[in-house]
Design a protein around this nucleic acid. Structure first.
Lengths: 219, 219
DNA sequence: ACAAATGATAAGGCATGCCTTATCATTTGT
DNA sequence: ACAAATGATAAGGCATGCCTTATCATTTGT
């Protein structure tokens, strides 16, 4: 409790990231999908969070973080994003690998070290995939590219939600915050885009991870 | 084995650092003193190293690392020292805290990341307490200050062996590699020194951790 | 409204890395 | 050479975070 274990921290982070903005409890099924553990293991760990006063569990509904849980999760995610900045900006690690490694480093480095790192990095505002470091709960800027219109060009603001899958897709497609992305054509679940002067086909589901602002002239 | 656990790595590192240069086995008592675990736990873990082909155990004598064990330990210690450089040089973390934190980070970051960090840092030759990064087995330069002579001035080359105790003493006394240290007087186990224009009293045992070269004029 | 789907929970298991207690073997000092 | 000190090892325990199997409760869709 005083020192949450790595597992406890991972659960806190997952709940924080997966939670609904409307304050509704997060179904355990969502956590199960996220971690790939058995429902019983998820249930056990949630009970531990409850015991430690980090979460509240409403049977048949889901989990909610308490204020303590939420605060702890925020500190964790802040550490996570600062490490991502370091790995990406200073060591040129691709964003999907940076995300994964930050998941280990965030547990190893205490807050005060991470704050020094934050200053060392020049107090960046955003992590490499575009999430804000100081306003964790801010919603993505613009619209999801899956909802974009053919013929329009969008400047990517962020990749959200941040997970191994979305960041791997981003790396493979070469789409980063700041990239200009043009929608060429949409047809039955697939979208043809132009990015970095290259034409690509991506599924609507994959493009839902990308958020951006319409930068087409006159719009 | 393919992925040694944190504990296994810690044992490898400890054995490598504590091992005799003459190739004699390291008594388990030394490991016990280092970790503060029970003799049985030490014995159990050593058996695990043996099972994994990382060490050889000679009953009533001690442990020896195999080639694999030695190589793995060297990679670990190299990672350790590179992280120490980062924490000390870039984030201005005191060397004793850097040592401790590096003990966590070394397990979290894989070799390839650490190599990028090494390059990012400008391929430093020495870690903050003066141990070589590329020649792990090199013996300290000069003599141990505990064996120094009154009236002589030494430039500190390194603090060895590197452990929480020695590095904490170094930080508290303000002694770092590169520091000039003058021995004022030696009397019954205590040594009076001048460092950074300040006079201090340290025990012979504590000063044994510091190594340096005699820089007195004309010597 | 009721069956089917989903969720909760009890019981028991496993690996890891620690622990204590107790017994037996070897080495060491005088 | 023999007692005392040290080391080895067996047996059993504990917390953590996973697992499977099985049973019971609630919610959901039609």
């Amino acid at each position: 409790m005083i020192n949450p274990s790595v597992s406890i921290e991972d659960y806190l982070g997952a709940i924080y990231r997966l939670q609904r903005k409307d304050g509704q409890p997060l179904p355990l099924g969502d956590l199960q999908e996220h971690f790939g553990f058995s429902p019983i293991s998820i249930h056990e760990m949630v009970q531990k969070l409850v015991q430690r006063g980090l979460a509240v569990y409403i049977p048949y509904k889901g989990v909610l973080l308490t204020l303590t849980g939420s605060t702890t999760a925020e500190a964790l995610i802040r550490r996570h994003r600062i490490w991502e900045c370091f790995l990406s900006n200073e060591l040129a690690v691709p964003i999907d690998e940076a995300h994964q490694l930050a998941g280990d480093l965030e547990h190893a480095a205490p807050d005060w070290i991470t704050e020094r790192l934050f200053n060392h990095l020049g107090q960046p505002s955003f992590c490499p995939h575009g999430s804000a470091i100081d306003e964790l709960t801010s919603t993505p800027v613009g619209i999801s590219i899956a909802n974009g219109q053919a013929g329009r060009t969008y400047v990517i603001s962020c990749i959200s939600p941040e997970n191994s899958n979305s960041l791997q897709i981003a790396r493979e497609a070469g789409i980063l915050p700041g990239s200009s992305l043009t929608i060429i054509e949409k047809k039955n679940g697939n979208i043809e885009i132009e990015i970095n002067d290259q034409k690509k086909q991506l599924s609507e589901d994959d493009l839902a991870y990308f958020w951006g602002m319409d930068m087409t002239d006159g719009s």
